[in-house]
Amino acid sequence: MIYLFCGLLGGAVLAAICVPLFSKDDTLESAIIEETEWDLLQRKKEIILGNIQDLDFEHKCGKLSDEDHQKIRSEMAEEASLVLKEIDNIESSQDLDALIRREVSARKGGVREVDPALCPSCGEKNIVTSKFCAECGAKLIGQ
């Protein structure tokens, strides 16, 4: 009985471990980078939108004066338009190619070793389509 229990447990665990090793499918799903520059910008846009909604609600509740509401709202709107501009840059035709290239190379596993958006000189993280670092002006590896 004891041997049966131990055998069943050991066999099941061994099978669970080995089955994936002999499967033919190796899709490299684990190489998909979830947070590309585009994803981060989209997320930033969602957050700013949410913040504007919260601000409007707090104003509606009477927690903010009209003056404060106007001022903060216009600052947020400015931030939102900057983010939209950056999204536009990435999504414009030429840069979309860059985006696809990055995704493809990421799937092949090339990008994870050297991030092309990362400045080799100062370490600043630039947007993926930049040719030169926004911080120090050095040429970026990916371009």
Partner: peptide, 15 residues
């Protein structure tokens, strides 16, 4: 960069 090994490691954690 082997999904097979990664999946095997995952199954081991369930094990």
């Amino acid at each position: 960069k082997s999904d097979k090994l990664i999946a095997s490691g995952r199954n081991a954690a369930i094990g």
